[in-house]
Amino acid sequence: MDLELTSVRKAYGQVVALDGVTLRARANETVAVVGPSGCGKSTLLELVCRLTEPDAGTISAPKAALMPQRDGLLPWLSALDNAGLALRASGASKRDARAAAHEHFEAFGLTGFERARPAELSGGMRQRVAFLRTLLAGRPVLCLDEPFGALDALTRSQMQRWLADALLQEPRTVLLVTHDVEEAALLADRIVLLSPRPGRVVETIEVDLPRPRARTDLAIVELRERALTAIEQKELA
């Protein structure tokens, strides 16, 4: 089932967060939503996750799982329990949730950290635990809100490669919100550029490039420049 937003508008009081946003993702596609801070990107994900309703327009989407901007890990839970949180939220026992989460720990490079609390994990590990939690929710759509925004440049590029691999293993429809144009070019099948508030779609760029992609690929570099130019022109206008 496809994910489709048509002419969606959302305002908070006087502040219009999104205005006339139309966006589409086919099953197992990754769509990146790129735009400057405060352009309503997070609102877009909240709408898709049904945390809030649009003022106008329609949203048709399968059930979506949210990965909030600052990982949303619970500080009192171990890595294993954090990863299994989605299962516990839907009524699974602690034991079943742990067993299900543990199956993925090796593939996620988390072996040996099962009992570690978030404060004891590195930034990259925290994001992997948060991503595993999102994945285990078992929803067809993943809404990732700047998943690597808080990481240093080196870890971020490792994690981008890692996410691309993980999605090849477990294909999902992904809505990736980011302010990093390069990240979008590396990961997405389509890039949707949003204007500053109120967020409107400036341009939609199809990224028809083979995977794996590298930052230094000429096509990626060109794409990045094209997207940046489009955003800058809009900001100046």
């Binding site: 049904r50 949210l66 949303g72 989605a86 516990r88 939220a89 839907s90 929710a137």
Partner: peptide
């Protein structure tokens, strides 16, 4: 934490589950 609250609501956790978890 509002992020964690959003997360649990997006997971359709019941009122009691949200309280307990």
């Amino acid at each position: 934490d509002p992020d964690a609250q959003k997360l649990l609501r997006s997971l359709d956790a019941s009122r009691w589950r949200r309280l307990a978890l």
